[in-house]
């Protein structure tokens, strides 16, 4: 009797879990470029509005052939690396101080919050007065721009370190320095590294902005020049170099995460 009415329980789970599909990501990319190329060749997309990807690629090749790529890229990378390295380095130090000492926190954290909200590019004219029209003001813009998010990420990370681990360290009589070195810094490292991801992209944005205001060489300067000459193919070439720079930095930070945060995997 029971069997007459037996039917399988309908499946209701599933649907919210992501499966990896690399092919799809590649396909979207290829289809988009193809559509763009075909659109440009058939005149469906006006050349004035957007150059064909092949033209942008030619512009990129030209840049390589005339040896200008390296000149622009090295100028930009130098600014970015200097600014970002010192910005994050000071940022981590100040963030740790704010995270560890109540007095520093009381003194600096409101200040950090107040300055964090200012778009650093608005300060560039002031930086030019302070640090000169040359490299100084550009590096300073990137340095200040990456400093504040790093400070906030770092002390947030310190605040989030598991209190029971700190109490454990104290209960075993570890010295203050040992607790900081062996418990607090490794515990805050995930937050610090994700802060690096954010500050890296902020760094690239500020790099271009600073280079657009006054630089002979640099990807930003190249893009600005291309823009004012309406050389949209060069503009697209420059923008794709920026995109590649961003991807490379994200990849490097990913590598660092894999190395330092092996224990999380």
């Amino acid at each position: 009797m029971v069997n007459d009415r037996a039917r399988p329980v309908p499946f209701r789970g599933g649907g919210f879990k992501h499966k990896p599909a690399v092919a799809v990501s590649l396909l979207v990319f290829v289809v988009l470029i193809l559509f763009w190329e075909v659109g440009s060749r058939t005149g469906f997309i006006s050349n004035l509005v957007l150059p064909a990807p092949s033209e942008a690629f030619t512009a990129l090749l030209q840049l390589i052939e005339t040896d200008m790529l390296w000149k622009h890229l090295s100028a930009s990378l130098q600014r970015l690396i200097l600014g970002w390295t010192f910005g994050t380095l000071f940022g981590v130090c100040v963030g740790l101080l704010i995270g560890l000492f109540s007095i520093v926190r009381a003194g600096l954290s409101p200040l950090v919050s107040a300055i964090f909200a200012i778009p650093k590019i608005a300060m560039l004219p002031l930086f030019i007065i302070w640090f000169g029209i040359g490299e100084g003001s550009k590096v300073a813009t990137i340095l200040f721009g990456t400093f504040f998010p790093t400070v906030i990420a770092t002390y947030g990370g310190v605040d989030n370190v598991d209190r029971t681990l700190i109490r454990m360290g104290q209960s075993f009589g570890l010295s203050w320095l040992s607790i900081v070195r062996k418990i607090i810094i490794p515990g805050a490292l995930p937050a610090i590294l994700s802060g690096f991801r954010i500050s890296a992209s902020i760094g690239i944005i500020l790099l271009v902005a600073a280079e657009m205001i006054g630089a002979e060489f640099g990807i930003g300067a190249y893009i600005l020049l291309a823009g004012s000459l309406m050389a949209t193919d060069q503009l697209i070439a420059g923008v794709s170099i920026l995109s590649l720079m961003g991807l490379t930095m994200a990849w490097l930070i990913g590598k660092a995460e894999n190395y330092f945060l092996k224990w999380r995997m």
């Binding site: 029971t164 109490r167 454990m168 209960s171 009589g173 418990i183 490794p186």
Partner: peptide, 17 residues
Amino acid sequence: LNPLTYIFQDFALLPWR
């Protein structure tokens, strides 16, 4: 080395060690 020594409910192990 540490006369009063705790064992905690949630183990308190360093996950990176």
